[in-house]
């Protein structure tokens, strides 16, 4: 865990609530969720399907705004209930990184291009973007596959490229939704350790939604979600 100079948390969510529908059809997907993450902290989020994990992740990822609550990232308030306090799209590309169960690489771009495109849409010069993309691929051990299309990469290699893409713009927060679900246990553990390494070396906070209980020791803290409520998992320190 890396402390910010001013001890500003990497991300702070207070009282997040998400309600779908209204009246008889009202569904509370997330109920008064509050969490604070420090820079470089890696947090696991467990829970059964439908517990509200993805709702939490998309809310904090500025994809699907909460019905109530506040989100602050790097000390800057970004969301007050469903009202965006920043240009969310610009904020996502500058401060957030995403990794999913599927790598979601663009099939028409090479591994290196999949990483550099994240920087180019953030106005990084193409040459600089390619250079950093290569550095990230080297860091993640897939530099030798830089020129290959996703089809030519194994599942683990694709997921590493996806992690490199998430890291491209040096985000404050990386959100990972079951990133190891499509991988075998060995590869899954490698990816989880990768998140830890990335968080500690780059200072990004990482939230990983996972069902994989075998790698929980990798995380600094573990939370569990059930019926839209967040609580500490017994394994959490």
């Amino acid at each position: 865990m890396i402390a910010d100079a001013n001890n500003t948390p990497a991300v702070e969510a207070i009282g997040l609530t998400k309600i779908y529908g209204s009246g008889n059809t009202e569904v509370v997907a997330m109920k008064d969720v509050s969490v604070t993450l420090a820079h470089g902290e890696v947090v696991a989020l467990l829970g059964p399907s439908g517990a509200g994990k993805s709702t939490f992740l998309t809310a904090i990822g500025l994809i699907n705004p909460p019905t109530a609550g506040r989100i602050t990232i790097g000390g800057q308030p970004v969301m007050d209930a469903d009202r965006a306090l920043v240009d969310v799209r610009a904020y996502r590309r500058q401060h957030l990184g995403f990794v999913f169960q599927k790598a979601n690489l663009m099939p028409f771009l090479s591994a290196m291009e999949n990483v550099s495109v994240a920087m180019e849409i953030n106005d990084v010069a193409p040459r600089d973007a390619r250079k950093r993309a290569m550095e990230l691929l080297e860091y993640l051990g897939v530099a030798d596959r830089a020129d290959h299309l996703p089809d030519a990469l194994s599942g683990g290699q694709q997921q590493r490229v996806a992690v490199a893409r998430a890291l491209a713009n040096r985000p404050s927060l990386i959100l990972a939704d079951e990133p190891t679900a499509a991988l075998d246990s060995h590869r899954g553990r490698q990816v989880m350790e990768l998140f830890r390494k990335v968080a500690h070396e780059h200072g990004s906070a990482v939230i990983v939604v996972t069902h994989d209980h075998r790698s929980l020791e990798v995380f600094d803290r573990t939370y569990e979600m059930e019926d839209g409520e967040l609580r500490s998992h017994p394994s959490s320190p």
Binding site: I63, R89, R92, R93, P107, V117, I121, R165
Partner: peptide, 12 residues
């Protein structure tokens, strides 16, 4: 799917 991913990454 790729367009959704671009939007998610914050593409204009």
């Amino acid at each position: 799917h790729d367009i959704a991913m671009l939007k998610l990454m914050g593409a204009r």
